[in-house]
Amino acid sequence: MSLRERIGVDTGQRLSIAAAVEWAADNDVHYVDVCLDGTPIDPDGYDDEVASIRATCAENDVSLGLHTLSAVNVAETSAHIADAVDDYLRAYVDIGDLVGADRIIVHGGYHFTDDREDRVAASKARLRRAIEYAADAHPDLLLENHNVEPDTSEMHYVPVTLEEVTDYFDALAAPNLGWAFNPPHARQFPADIEGYFEALGPDICGEVRLNDNDGEIEEHLAPGEGTLDFDAMFQLIESSGYDGHYMLAFGTLEDMLDGREYLLERYSGLPSA
């Protein structure tokens, strides 16, 4: 596939699965991610749409991903709520399998100032259960490296540092677990984009998520509005042999279509055909 065909759009909670794959087909987008949290996450609610979703994807060469909400704490330890988070992840797997999704993006959750060890342990255990639950399902799980929060924040995501991300993949290694690489998050740390990608490599990378920022705080800017060197980033990733997809995540749907054109037209060495 050309690079144009490999640059996808994350629709977030804006569209249902059925509407998202139709939109993708209408806009020559071949990779689309959807967050289900704007509606009840019930596999039984898709019975009437499964055939049309699968047909739209097949007829228009659309690869579908589901993106869990990072606000749902995969590191949850509280009674009742902890069980609900397991149910949440299983529901995403069930729906993804039902509609033919290729991937489910997951997160490690977050801890607070005085409970990191317990919550990281809970996070790894819960992700391990989700990986095992999804072993016979169609979609793979892709763990995203998260963004850092200010030191003064009470809440902190995991995994964020290169050491944490590497530790998670070492602990959870499985055939159906891959990496959702987020370069804007990586550049918040000294290892930067190059350090993260060289340490983890293209073999486990199932998606590269794209937006611009200034490398200091979490921002979802359009390409060109921040300081991320997209040319160097593409050269690094493409020269590694990575032939997977990229996923735009900023602004409106129209902003992301414009961003795709900006990237293809502006940066050297990027095929636009």
Rank of each mutant, 00 (worst) to 15 (best):
L3A: 04
D10S: 11
T11H: 01
G12H: 14
S16P: 05
A19P: 07
Y31H: 15
V32T: 08
L36I: 13
G38A: 12
D44C: 07
D47C: 00
D47H: 02
V50A: 08
S52Q: 10
S52A: 10
L64K: 05
L66K: 01
S70A: 14
V72E: 09
E76Y: 13
I81R: 13
I81Y: 13
R90M: 10
I95H: 02
I95S: 08
D97R: 13
D102S: 15
D102L: 08
V106K: 03
V106Y: 10
R116E: 14
E117V: 09
V120E: 07
R128Y: 04
I131G: 03
E132L: 12
D151A: 14
M155P: 06
E164W: 03
T166C: 07
F169W: 04
L177N: 03
W179S: 06
A186V: 02
A186N: 00
Q188G: 07
F189Y: 15
F189P: 04
F189E: 13
D192K: 01
I193Q: 09
A199N: 06
C205L: 06
G206T: 06
R209Q: 11
L210Y: 00
N211K: 06
I217Y: 05
E218V: 02
E219S: 09
E225C: 03
D243I: 14
F250G: 09
T252I: 11
L263T: 13
Y267P: 02
S268M: 11
P271N: 08
